[in-house]
Design a protein around this nucleic acid. Structure first.
Length: 806
RNA sequence: GCCCGGGUGGUGAAACGGUAGACACAGGGGACUUAAAAUCCCUGGCCGCUCGCCGGCAUGCGGGUUCGAGUCCCGCCCCGGGUACCA
């Protein structure tokens, strides 16, 4: 072989790495560790998506770089393999989901290996492997024992015609995606996880994380902590109290009415006979609406007077009680006090129903619009004259003294619905006895395996297909008591919540991971994946991690120290890649045509990792030509002879090399892959027209190129006479002396405009530079137009004259 | 509405407050070739002219700070993503 042929080089080195277990890693306390994690893929039938290799390439480059810098690198890969598609395929074709899943995994593994990533494949995990989900079940038991798992009746998407419960994504406009049958909300027995118990810690611990600020902000918003007060309002003429949550207790004197959610428990009790018919009709109407319809879609706030009045605890005022479906039963206390003068929603409602609007904070005209900003309290008795902040504190203290309210914190975050009525998921390791007692599986009994079933069709009752396997479901304990196994299974999130922990000790049969491995490898130093997981996966995972921290199984509060989101890769037409648009790029085709190294290089050359950017076939062609050019620096295309010589390198060549080392090293540290590649292109462009091929320069270039294009780099390294892989060869070091230029081009400006350029010695003095600049005819011309008021000299950059008058 | 990103050549993009457009794609010209491909070299924001080491205009728009602004500040416009009657 004389020409660069990736089809020959790439399989050769992939085989070498595999046979020599080049990237197998163990604990080595003599080196600093680097745990670099990719979001593991769901192995779909469609094969690897072009978006996957972007993040994987970035992490692989970094891992190879870190190895060369002496780090002990953990870089694993696995499969988030439970999921709906395999079960749907099973329902249609009768194929066991595990068969479909294994076939898909095989294809994904082949595609990923074809890109030459330096994973330690001995640590591969598969969430559907009983050896893996054994420990997922184990973690569930720990959650249960901590009181963080409980059963509740929760509404699900029930489709009568299909006889099954549907995921949100299977429901479109209130109809089933398959068949278009009606879907209703039906309460079912579900497992819940008490993530809300960790809300504060999930919020606070974001502070120390090196994550994109936007993602942290999204998590904060999702948790939605709001500080305020609960205030009790006595209902006039009833022995009943309405408790409201408000973030603005300071505006309590401005409350002119109240609104209850239609599903509020007191509605039926306090509604007067005269209002009863209207209220019932309204309650009935809103029960058919989803929260989405009640909130997002409704532009108009609607409500109905219940006929009842409540007493404002601060001033004894009697204010009407309404119901309105813009108040949600599930948020806060399901009741609000309305302060139309200082809340926009309340203002709109008050205008519509002719309710009084009172000013309690100065600074606006509450008859024209709600004033939500700061100001001085008025018409507010004991808090008159205070600013908003002090007024809040004073009024809460006052309410607490009289036991009519208290400071309170409210969260938007809900507990996590943790069960699915599916076959293809982790079984819950527990039995329900006839008397209602729950018996947990013993750790030694794990895993509770998925039984084989006759059919994957839904049971028809809403329960999972597992409910139809009577000899699996029905159990008799050794003591004779009878029970039923849990037939719900866990959601796909379960397996992905802790996979980063399994990687550190993936073949441990005795424990999910060892304490030594945890202490050595955690936390994950860098986690790279798509922004679509910004909230749910990352929040759930953090939650489990904190529980594991509390039971002493992990020693860090947070699992992922640094997070980077790769951007979306669009189709060549600039649109999101999709089958229907026919703009999907298949990695297999790119590799076949240009090679894996060119594919890797182009994925990184397109632009910053985080940016959304379109694919370009001619762009791949461009980086492939760069690799061809680089190859020809080393190998004679016709004779296959090595062109590299032992001759001493010229200072210019050394300077070019050392500048390149500096640039590539700095850029890799900052994950600026695109500009690092540009720097290598510049070095190749520098060498191409020159005859000299000094070994020291050519070896340096090969090592710089290695993280990006490892196959071709290994091949060149071998041709340079080395017997072993370059994966652990020390990263080249640049020398400050070598990168110094003899002369520097100065820009000469007059009044900020460029009027000339000047090559000056690198060590030129200010005086000499200014004198030389004045000599330039074009500069002198402009200087002559007025008086030089000021001269600016920036070393190594420019001389700037400020000229006044003319 | 709110919160994050982002607006730079024909295109993807570079640019410690210091020569805007590195690097690459597409384009134009040339060399090699019988020819083509491949390769190599040159060119390359827009406008103007006296064609130069020339001048003017240029980083979404309008202001400001500065000797100097793509970069910092203020006010707008547009695009992408996220998110919401959350009291």
């Amino acid at each position: 072989m004389s020409k660069y042929e990736p089809a020959v080089v790439e399989p050769k080195w992939q085989q070498y790495w595999e046979e020599n277990k080049t990237f197998k890693v163990g604990m080595d306390t003599s080196k600093p560790k680097f745990y670099c994690l990719d979001m593991f893929p769901y192995p779909s039938g469609a094969g690897l998506h072009v978006g996957h290799p972007e993040g994987y390439t970035a992490t692989d480059i970094l891992c190879r770089y870190k190895r060369a810098r002496g780090f002990n690198v953990l870089h694993p890969m696995g499969w988030d393999a439970f999921g709906l598609p395999a079960e749907q395929y099973a329902i249609q074709h009768g194929t066991h989901p595990s068969l479909t899943t294994q076939a898909n995994i095989k294809n994904f593994r082949r595609q990923i290996k074809a890109l030459g990533f330096s994973y330690d494949w001995d640590r591969e995990v598969d969430t559907t492997d009983p050896g893996y989900y054994k420990w997922t079940q184990w973690i569930f038991l720990q959650l249960y024992k901590k009181g963080l798992a409980y059963i509740a009746e929760v509404p699900v998407n029930w489709c009568q015609e299909l006889g099954t419960v549907l995921a949100n994504e299977e429901v479109i406009d209130g109809k089933s995606e398959r068949g278009g049958f009606p879907v209703v909300r039906k309460p079912m027995r579900q497992w819940m996880l008490r993530i809300t118990a960790y809300a504060d810690r999930l919020l606070e611990d974001l502070e120390g994380l090196d994550w994109p600020e936007g993602i942290k902000e999204m998590q904060r918003n999702w948790i939605g902590r709001s500080l305020g007060a609960e205030v009790d309002f006595q209902v006039d003429g009833h022995d009943a109290v309405i408790t409201v949550f408000t973030t603005r207790p300071d505006t309590l004197f401005g409350a002119t009415y109240m609104v209850l959610a239609p599903e509020h428990a007191l509605v039926a009790r306090i509604t007067t006979p005269a209002q009863s018919a209207e209220v019932s009709a309204y309650v009935e109407g809103s029960s058919r609406k989803s929260d989405f319809e009640r909130t997002e879609m409704a532009k108009d706030k609607t409500g109905i007077f219940t006929g009842a009045y409540a007493v404002n605890p601060v001033n004894g005022a009697k204010i009407p009680v309404y119901i309105g479906d813009y108040v949600l039963g599930g948020y806060g206390t399901g009741a609000i006090m309305a302060v139309p003068g200082h809340d926009e929603r309340d203002w709109a409602f008050a205008k519509k129903y002719g309710l009084p609007i009172l000013e309690v904070i100065t600074g606006g005209d509450v008859q024209k619009a709600a004033h939500t900003g700061d100001g001085e309290l008025v018409n507010s008795g004991l808090i008159d004259g205070l600013r908003v902040k002090e007024a809040k504190e004073r009024i809460v203290a006052w309410l607490e003294e009289r036991k009519q309210g208290k400071g309170a914190v409210n969260y938007r975050l809900r507990d996590w619905l943790f069960s699915r009525q599916r076959y293809w998921g982790e079984p819950f390791p527990l039995i329900h006895l006839e008397d209602g007692e729950i018996i947990l599986a013993d750790e030694a009994e794990l895993p509770v395996r998925l039984p084989d079933v006759e059919t994957y069709k839904p049971s028809g009752t809403g329960e999972s297909p597992l409910a139809t396997i009577t000899d699996w479901v029905n159990v008799t304990l050794p003591d004779g008591r009878k029970g039923r196994r849990e037939t719900n299974t866990m959601p796909q999130w379960a397996g992905s919540c802790w996979y980063y922990l399994r990687y550190i000790d993936a073949r441990n049969d005795e424990a999910p991971w060892s304490a030594e491995a945890e202490k050595y490898w955690l936390p994950v130093d860098l986690y790279v994946g798509g922004a679509e997981h910004a909230v749910l996966h990352l929040l759930y995972s953090r939650f489990w991690h904190k529980v594991l921290y509390d039971i002493g199984r992990v020693s860090t509060k947070e699992p992922f120290q640094r997070l980077v989101n790769q951007g979306l890769i669009l189709g060549e037409d600039g649109a999101k890649m999709s089958k229907s648009l026919g703009n999907v790029v298949n990695p297999d085709d790119v590799i076949a045509r240009y090679g894996a190294d060119a594919m890797r290089l182009f994925e990184m050359f397109m632009g910053p990792l985080e940016a959304t950017k379109p694919w370009s076939t001619t762009g791949v062609d461009g980086v492939r030509r760069f690799l061809d050019r680089a190859w020809r620096l080393y190998v004679h295309e016709e004779t296959d002879a090595l062109l590299v010589t032992d001759a001493e390198a010229s200072p210019e060549a050394l300077r070019a090399l050392h500048k390149c080392i500096r640039k590539v090293s700095d850029d890799l540290d900052a994950m600026r892959f695109n500009t690092a590649i540009s720097a290598m292109m510049e070095l190749v462009n520098f060498l191409t027209p020159r005859a000299e091929r000094p070994k020291v320069v050519m070896e340096g270039l090969a090592l710089l190129l290695a993280p990006f294009a490892p196959h071709v780099a290994e091949e060149l390294w071998q041709r340079l006479g080395h017997g072993e892989t370059l994966a652990y060869v020390a990263w080249p070091v640049w020398d400050a002396e070598r990168v110094k230029d003899d002369t520097v081009t100065y820009a000469i400006q007059v009044n900020g405009k460029l009027r000339g350029q000047l090559d000056l010695p690198a060590d030129v003095t200010q005086e000499a530079a200014i004198a030389a600049a004045r000599e330039i005819p074009n500069v002198a011309k402009f200087l002559a137009e007025g008086e030089v008021k000021k001269t600016v000299f920036v070393k190594g950059r420019l001389v700037s004259f400020v000229v006044a008058g003319a």
